[in-house]
Design a binder for these strands. Structure first.
Length: 560
RNA sequence: GCGCCCGUAGCUCAAUUGGAUAGAGUAUCUGACUACGAAUCAGAAGGUUAGAGGUUCGAGUCCUCUCGGGCGCACCA
């Protein structure tokens, strides 16, 4: 918004260079209450520099502010409060949003550099649980935000298709599995085998030894192990793709862990060359100063997660030349990423600085982590299905003649689930609650979608002409909508800087709320002379809501 | 034991990154559909920000300690 830059400039000039423009812009804030104006600048930090009271500094600055968009300026309790000329600012904002439409809020902080995002990354032969949902929707949204900020993105689904778990599954399948039952419902059957294995292994530790043995065979190319692995993998990927399709999420790469099998030796050699490897209790490790050592090779010579992640990082840098590399993975793996990053740094890779673990809290059930091993998980597929059914029921109740009901129900149902996840700050644990997830009222995805649909139908009914000349809006009630619209680019910036999609989720709720209040108090279509002007506001709201929802990975149906 | 995350209204969460009087949703109660879409809106009520110190003009936010919860900590990923 231009006005903000103007105020920064005026304050900057009146401070004789004591603060930079960036600092001033950072300090400018939105006052808490309306009567304090539309922009505020606190002068407390300046009191020492100028050896004056904050209040007298504020008065001084206030007296210097003159601008065609400013109505009046007050100095109150050490703050400079700026009141904007609402009619003029309203017109500027609405014109800008109307002109740029879905490009409103685009930023150029990425400057075309590449950011890789490692997210979703479900494990083969395990069902897609609620836990994986978080990584999936957060990663997807971060990718969309990054693109809006001018980055090029590479979305990587680092499938968990390697590791000792396969040894376990192979052992379990050979002992208790039946081919035809597994063919019928592969994921459920594999989960049963996995759970059964862990029950038995508690009393019979030799099973774990067998599992490690079979994993070693798999790494050495044993034919039976290999063909079972391929089979399990195919079945799982098919199952996952159903879910991605429902959520509307795509990837640029499905290179999983197995992809790096032939790329690990090089890393081990490099570590050897740099004298970073040490033997410890028969295993090969990289000792680290303030962290536990990073395990590279097991006693029996087979590889570990860290080994593959090292290979993956190098591969990604060499192939994508990333500036930033984000790992959207649960916070229970924060130690692993600290180790990974430290090892890469010790190897001398400058680009390691661009890597970041975007951690998030877990989905808890009854206050506890859900455990695949014990079969204590909630299947995402079932939750999605329930949400879609409920959305369908709502449509049949409220709008039975709607076209393309199935599609809309899918958009609303999945929207509720995605939004429920993204509105919480990443780092918080989320207690699993089907009831909360299936709520369509209040601060929810469907609330925002509903607001968008409402705006859409106003535009159709009022025959909005986008490019016509509009006289200004003079509704008092429009102001809070206009200020919200004005903040959108800031919200994008914050979401990007903090890798925090919840900023956008909260924002679209606020904008919806402001618009619904406006809608409740102003009859948009009644007065023909004001209709097009008011519709231009409605159009701005619709465009920004749609864009905000898109950045979260939600659809914005025209009707619902 | 050590490390990381967290503790705000009955419940679920915010709080412009240290700013003015801590705000929403939900649940409860009340009001608004022959009304541009009631998946909505208006109103009531709900708080010693876990507790104690400290830093400063100012602390829910930063530091220390205590209590409580979650997750990690060598051959799983």
């Amino acid at each position: 918004m231009k006005i903000k830059k103007d105020v920064v400039e005026i304050v900057f000039n009146s401070l004789e260079g004591q603060l930079s423009r960036e600092q001033i812009e950072h300090m400018l804030e939105k006052p808490q209450y309306d009567y304090m104006g539309d922009l505020a600048f606190p002068c407390f930090t300046l009191a020492k520099l100028f050896r004056q009271s904050p209040q007298s500094i504020a008065s001084d600055i206030a007296s210097k502010i003159t601008n065609p968009l400013v109505e009046k300026v007050e100095a109150v309790r050490g703050y400079v409060n700026v009141f904007l000329k609402r009619d003029k600012v309203t017109n500027e904002v609405i014109n800008e949003v109307n002109r740029s439409a879905q490009e409103y809020g685009n930023l150029d902080i990425g400057r075309g550099e590449v950011v890789t995002l490692d997210f979703s990354s479900p494990n083969i032969a395990k069902p897609f649980s609620m836990g994986h949902l978080r990584s999936t929707v957060i990663g997807n949204s971060l990718a969309l935000v990054a693109e809006k900020c001018g980055y090029k993105t590479v979305k990587i689904n680092h499938i968990g298709d390697w590791g000792t778990q396969f040894g376990k599954l192979i052992v379990a399948y050979r002992l208790w599995g039946k081919e035809d039952t597994l063919r019928q419902d592969p994921i459920k059957e594999l989960l049963k085998l996995y759970v059964h294995f862990h029950e038995k292994a508690e009393h019979d530790p030799s099973l774990n030894d067998q599992a490690r043995e079979w994993f070693k065979k798999l790494e050495e190319g044993n034919e039976e192990a290999r063909s079972l692995w391929t089979w399990f993998r195919e079945e799982s990927l098919q199952e996952f793709s159903k879910i991605y399709k429902k959520l509307g999420i795509t990837f640029d790469s499905y290179h999983g862990e197995a992809f790096y099998n032939d790329k690990m030796q090089r890393i081990v050699d490099l570590l050897e060359e740099k004298k970073m490897l040490e033997q410890s209790e028969g295993a090969h490790v990289v000792p680290l100063e303030d962290l536990p050592p990073c395990l590279i090779r097991k006693r029996d010579g087979s590889t570990l997660y860290a080994t593959r992640d090292l290979a993956a990082a190098v591969y990604r840098q060499e192939n994508y030349h990333f500036k930033k590399s984000l790992y959207v993975v649960g916070n229970e793996q924060s130690l692993h990423f600290q180790q990974l990053f430290t090892v890469l740094k010790k190897m001398g890779y400058e680009w390691q600085k661009g890597m970041e673990h975007i951690s998030f809290g877990m989905m808890l059930k009854d206050g506890k982590k859900m455990s695949t091993r014990k079969g204590k998980i909630v299947l995402l597929e079932e939750v999605i299905q329930e949400a879609i059914s409920l959305a369908m029921k709502n449509i049949n109740d409220k709008n039975p003649q709607l076209e393309a009901k199935e599609e809309v129900a899918r958009h609303v149902g999945t929207g509720a689930i995605i939004f429920h996840d993204l509105k919480h700050h990443r780092s918080n644990d989320i207690e699993f609650s089907l009831e909360d997830m299936l709520r369509f009222e209040g601060e929810t995805g469907p609330y925002v979608q509903y607001t968008h649909a409402r705006a859409s139908s106003l535009l159709v009914k009022g025959q909005f002409e986008k490019d016509s000349d509009h006289v200004g809006i003079d509704d008092k009630e429009a102001w809070s909508v206009v200020t919200q619209l004005m903040y959108f680019p800031n919200v994008i910036k914050r979401a990007s800087e903090n890798s925090d999609p919840s900023q956008i989720a909260k924002y679209v709720v606020e904008l919806s709320r402001a618009f619904n209040q406006y809608y409740g108090s102003v009859r948009v279509l009644d007065d023909a002379s004001k209709r097009q002007a008011r519709l231009s506001l409605v159009y701005s709201v619709k465009a920004v809501l749609k864009e905000g929802l898109r950045l979260l990975g939600l659809q914005a149906p025209e009707k619902m």
